[in-house]
Nucleic acid binder design. Structure first.
Lengths: 370, 370
DNA sequence: TTGAAAGCGGTACCAC
DNA sequence: GTGGTACCGCTTTCAA
């Protein structure tokens, strides 16, 4: 069987829009394609200095950018990592992403960030896309479960993937001791003297939220405090939902003196709700958040919160992923423990019994009798 | 010249880690590769119903995911957009990114987000990466100029690229009337009666910041207000820098009664600085921000700011990019005008003359004599 | 309707 | 040290 004569396969003319190919560089430098490849990839013991220089010159002149697709196709590696985040507006991911990014770059990986907006369908979509793009590894930054099947496949197929926070799928994970975090947050309030503590929680589909809840509950129970059903409300971790929920909590007949929020964004909105109702924080109401996002310390009052080393968590996730890729065995589970950061949004409960607050009142009625 | 006999080129056995290829699907379905391709791509007038079914079944059973690299290599299109953002922690980009993402997905494009952290070198790096990955288009979300050369190349090479906000490179752009925005922000303060207005600005390398500055200055000038040199300070748009700068402003001998911040994050930090010094906002100090980030309305006091339709800006950017790709001629310049959103951080200036504030004092000395 | 095979732009093995 | 070329996985003519 004969291959038909090829008509100048590599070096044919380029219509202006088309990217330059290695063949054109070769032709311009008057060397073979193989030589160009060797020069550009710095193959050890490669090419003589004369040709090398010619190649470099030609590449520069043509502004040659190698086609990563072609290279990856052959090498079966893309030097690319995919990162799935649930909500790009949540500063939680900003810190994590920075950590991942720094490590990735240092190891020569590009990072493909995908924002799923907490929509399982979108998440499923992006997992497919990432697989088809043949990213070398996938980091799953958070919640949203698109039919566990998608994760299962990653696992079965041996596609390196690491989770952050969640651990509801059998994949390597960066773990957060949310149980302890929740416990500490609640205990902090209890120690301050609070006995009427409500919870502004998040979606219970998230293992992180589940654990925080369990931590809260455990602490409450340890001190014999009850938790009425209507003092547990679930938002979506974004501030808008918390504003409404907090208002409901604060205008109820029996009003809590403290609120545990599932994250900082919700805590901030809770404080806003309190202010709108004429309640002062922390004098009338204590609030503690979770995550310690950047803006937490710039609020007034500055937010008391359970701090998470977001950047370092990102670093750990990326390192785990890269270790997985390299096949280097190592600890597949990094643990991080939230740390209580006491600022200004918590204090002792008000001494005087409360009075019911009317929704949306001005600062005139502070809800205190004295 | 003879090509050596190929040894079962397509359907050879797969080591478990390797992704399934089209050849394996073909073999399992007992059809040719071409047929599989046709079925999977829904080629009109393609394949008979019997084979079609067989192919689909085989693909499903093998959990086949086509190799996007191979496809793109052939098609010379990746159906992928690249997005460069300057600071993933800046909520400004959250809104924009959502808009871009929604439009992209709707048009079948995957989005490759890259965070440059305002580092020109990183930006340059990512532009290269994006080019090598052969993304179909690039959206440049903000500042940072890695030697204009990189942009120039995009332009010269005809690589579809669109800018958001900035316009210092000859590329299609989503434009923001920052000049007018700055003017309105300043005018708002002037109308309230302020005559001592300071500016907490950002990096002057950004055209957006430049224009906002010009707008401020113009308004001040129109009302015959002077702007002492030491009342113009430059931060990096992140809150940490603003905290320091604001403190310097507020502890100077002659203290402004209002501050124009270059963005909301800096405005928030400015308010924090004021509170730390025992100044009340807006009674002692008015602050106006820029961007209207999500949390702006949850602050206490809620932030008065120049609102930008971030989501719609993202939509416009993505649509422009996609239009460019399709070759559909259309308006290459969408304009957006910031809109004054008056909330609680601005009010009339204090009536009584100020007294110098000592740095870091408690709330005891309010800086008012009466 | 179906299959064979020529590339897409690289890499890396094999000769010389 | 240098060049020739098979091959990566897919799409898309071209023939049958």
């Amino acid at each position: 069987m004969r291959t038909g004569k090829r008509h100048s396969p590599r070096g044919r003319k380029r219509s202006p829009g088309e990217p330059v190919t290695i063949g054109e560089v070769a032709r311009r430098a008057g060397v073979s394609i193989a030589t160009v490849s060797r020069v550009l990839n710095n193959v050890p013991r490669g090419v003589g200095p004369v040709l090398r220089k010619r190649v470099l010159k030609a590449a520069r002149e043509l502004d040659y950018h190698p086609n990563a697709l072609a290279r990856s196709l052959h090498q079966k590696r893309t030097h690319t990592l995919g990162l799935l985040i649930t909500d790009i507006a949540n500063p939680y991911y900003a810190g994590i992403t920075r950590g991942i990014e720094d490590v990735s770059r240092r190891h020569g990986y590009a990072l493909f960030i995908c924002n799923t907006d907490r929509d399982p369908a979108t998440m499923a979509h992006y997992i497919e896309v990432l697989r088809e793009q043949r990213v070398d590894g996938i980091i799953i930054g958070g919640g949203g479960t698109p039919g566990r099947r998608h994760f299962q496949t990653l696992h079965d197929r041996g596609i390196p993937a690491v989770l952050i926070g969640r651990y509801d799928v059998p994949l390597p994970a960066v773990r957060i001791d949310n149980l302890k975090g929740g416990w500490e947050a609640a205990t902090h309030l209890i120690r301050l003297g609070h006995r009427r503590i409500a919870i502004l929680s998040g979606p219970m589909t998230s293992t992180s939220i589940q654990d925080r809840m369990r931590g809260y509950r455990r602490a409450l129970k340890e001190h014999g405090l009850s938790l009425p059903k209507d003092w547990v409300l679930h938002g979506d971790l974004r501030p808008a939902s918390a504003l409404q929920l907090a208002e409901r909590l604060l205008t109820a007949r029996r009003r809590p003196t403290a609120i545990l929020a599932a994250n900082d964004q919700m805590a901030i909105a809770t404080i806003r709700a309190a202010h709108q109702l004429g309640l002062r924080v922390p004098e009338d109401l204590s609030v503690v958040g979770f995550d310690n996002i950047e803006l937490a310390s710039y609020m007034s009052p500055a937010l008391t919160t359970m701090g998470l080393p977001l950047y370092r968590m990102g670093v750990a996730a990326a390192e785990t992923a890269i270790r997985l890729l390299a096949g280097t065995p190592g600890n597949e589970e990094a643990w991080f423990t939230p740390e209580l950061i006491v600022r200004e949004s918590t204090g002792p409960p008000p001494v005087v019994a409360d009075r019911t607050i009317q929704p949306r009142q001005g600062p005139g009625s502070k809800g205190r009798d004295a």
